[in-house]
Nucleic acid binder design. Sequence first.
RNA 1: GGGCGAUUAGCUCAGUUGGUUCAGAGCACCUGCCUUACAAGCAGGGGGUCGACGGUUCGAAUCCGCCAUCGCCCACCA
Length: 882
Amino acid sequence: MELAAKYNAAEVEDKWYAYWLAHKFFHSEPNEKDPYTIVIPPPNVTGILHMGHVLNNTLNDVLIRNARMHGKNACWVPGTDHASIATESKVVAKLKAMGISKEDIGREEFLRHAWEWKEEHGGIILQQLRKLGCSCDWDRTRFTMEPALSEAVINTFVYFYKKGWIYKGVRMVNWDPEALTAVSDDEVVHKDTQSHFYHLKYFISDGQGNPTDKYLVIATTRPETIMADAAICVNPKDERHFWLKGKKVLIPLINREIPVIEDDYVEMDFGTGCLKVTPAHDVHDYEIGLRHNLPVLEIIDDHGRLNEKAHILVGEDRFVARKKIVKMLEEAGNLLKVEDYTSPVGYSERTNAVIEPKLSAQWFLRMDTLAKVALETVKSGRTKFIPERYVNTYRHWMENAHDWCISRQLWWGQRIPAYYLPNGQFVVEATPEAALEAAQAICPDIKAEDLHQDEDVLDTWFSSWLWPISVFDPEMPGHPDHKPNKDLSYYYPTSDLVTGPDIIFFWVARMIMAGEEFMGREPFSNVYFTGIVRDKIGRKMSKTLGNSPNPLDLIETYGADAVRIGMLLCSSAGNDIFYDEAQIKQGAAFCNKIWNSYRLVKGFSVDPSVAQTPAAAAAIRWFDAKLSETVALVEDHYRKFRISDALMAIYKLFWDDYCAWFLEAIKPAFGQPVDPETYRATLGFFEALLKLIHPVMPFITEELWQNMEERQEGETIMYAAAPTVKPYAAGTLVDFELAEEAVNGVRGIRNQKNIGPKETLELKVKGAFPASVIPVIEKMGNVSMETVDGFGDAQGVGFMVRTYEMFVALSGLVNVEEEIAKLEKDLAYQQKFLSGVRGKLANERFVANAPAAVIENERKKEADSLSKIESLESQLKVLRNS
RNA sequence: GGGCGAUUAGCUCAGUUGGUUCAGAGCACCUGCCUUACAAGCAGGGGGUCGACGGUUCGAAUCCGCCAUCGCCCACCA
């Protein structure tokens, strides 16, 4: 097959992906080999691929392919998350566009639409991952809301309820007035927000509900909530407010009488020292209210509008009401002053609506024991975090974990299995039948239609925290007594998890909790936290900024291998990624380089009667060692999750060592054949390089590997054994490096003197230079080389390769003055260096304290420097005499 | 307000327990080359007092203190 001059990714990629699928190369079943398991961080079922996914899944794929080539039974379980809020809001928006509201059609009809939407858009992202080359075991694809996994979720709920860790309670929760649901503390983002501090006069009541002329002043950012005030609170130690003791004051505008109370919570030096207490609409006020037995008056409805209990501004949105009430207060003479004020305000992570603290009945899961156990998992190192510093973040959160609000006022999700009896009691059971039975134990004559299931669904994370267990054995989580099935026993605990640090609490921490609770051990050994993908000037990628490229377009243009490599080149663990298309171009260039090096090798004609050149023999010996050295380095990088370093090491091995040095050293003259031994070695190295880079660039490596020789149907580079480290003599590497430096020296002189590469030069070297690499220097530098005792008084240019003096004879081309100036500069540098070294050696304390090896090294530096100085001086002498 | 992390070449980052001529890599840049695998290429080259100051040490990019700037996480001062 003739190879095109340029690599065409598009032609190659679909072909091999189809081949891999057809042969089920990604599929894993338990066997006698060691498992290597990854569960995918399940993307939202209706999501589409963005650059963050590309980074994350490329890393996952590199790890899984690398493990596979190292003889592990590699299993990467894919799947999607039902993402209750995100998906529900998309469906709501779609229905809204059709003029339908979710309340109009009711739960069942809404869910029908939602499933329809899921069928239509769901799993697009999984198709896109195929384009990227991900080697997921598609036969194992899971969905967090598929029947088996939903059952696991329900069973888990029942399990914790019966254990007494799930309770229903009326609590102040974070209410999202747009999504119309409670959200957990972790779904609230606090942002400093410009607002105002309104100083309001509350007049003292005369006891009959009439204002006197005395007043106190409170400062608030939320004047629209004054109608819900239950008291004014001052610090009991605050002398300024002693006169208020036992007084009652009137709420402005509505003139309702409220008491003045005392509580330590109030800071004396903040604001005016008087706090308005609004138990229904502020978390702390609620707690003060509990302590002082204050009434709770809710004046804001679920949509964030004032209700009739506010008496005024009824029906107005809270922010509109704020503006209007300020004006009313001003007109009524209650507004003393307005200050600019910046304070942290909670926003819903999902809708960006300002969170309204709201009192409501919600379901909670106790976190104390779960968090304690899961903290120990990480502290003990059974689960390692990379980078390690995330352990601190984790510890802090775990030590302060609040109970988890797991109910959501949504429909898309697993419905809470609590069933209410007509008398308000409830039972929690996995099925309606079991619930009926339990209910009948309370009220014998109750019938199925008398029971009413809780309207709420569970937080999405309440299903994804089971993911590393439930994808293998959905029976397990809710039934810890259940014996794990074959898959779960084999694949659990999984090996590595690659995810973003933004979901360390939502997901990672909770998977560890569930893993410990149900399996008695950690769900994964390592968690590798990636950074956030930003554009090249550091902005987060977002739809509104339009700075996020479509990964599929990039794959189309540059090929999946190039996109993968481009993402990895700049991704050290835990650092944000500054995405730049230039990196992908670099990846594409690398593909092309690999492609063309293969074209060269494949174009060689082999002649058994030709003898191997000494240069080729030396190059083979060297590259063999170089390969082993690099493989060891790469494996070390992989162990430490330094994926970009591993990639860079292979990149340089391929480009610099193999292409620039090895191939050039063994390359026969144009039109000449190569000997069989060299050819075999060259192809062997090429194959090793393909295998080494395959985890990162799966497509081009498969294409070339298949092309190298006749392969059987069903063979693949995916399962080829990774190159191993072989012992080698250290001198092999050093000798070749000397040759490289000599060649570089000659090339430098050519460049400087404008001598073309085709003109053969004479190179002399003083002393015992390793003979085996001399042919390499002669070939690569286009020189004829000889070892001499001295350079005599020939005209030319000298240079040093480590301690070897080299000399290129150049009659007539040498500018004597220039050479002298250059040598003098070198000499001055050497003398300064030498005096530095000697200073050190003359320092008694250095000699007394430094380790012997260090001192020995200083002595060697001194000797080397002396010999260099000697050489420079003798060269100068020759030049000055000429 | 509390905590964590960062600051090294124009950019993105390495630099492992203080000591090999340790100040590095990739990209970018400059110069010269269309040399028969590759111009998505080849050869060569310039560029940083390692954020500031102070300290420990024979020796500091590396350890300590303080300051500055940036980023992230957590947090109920109305």
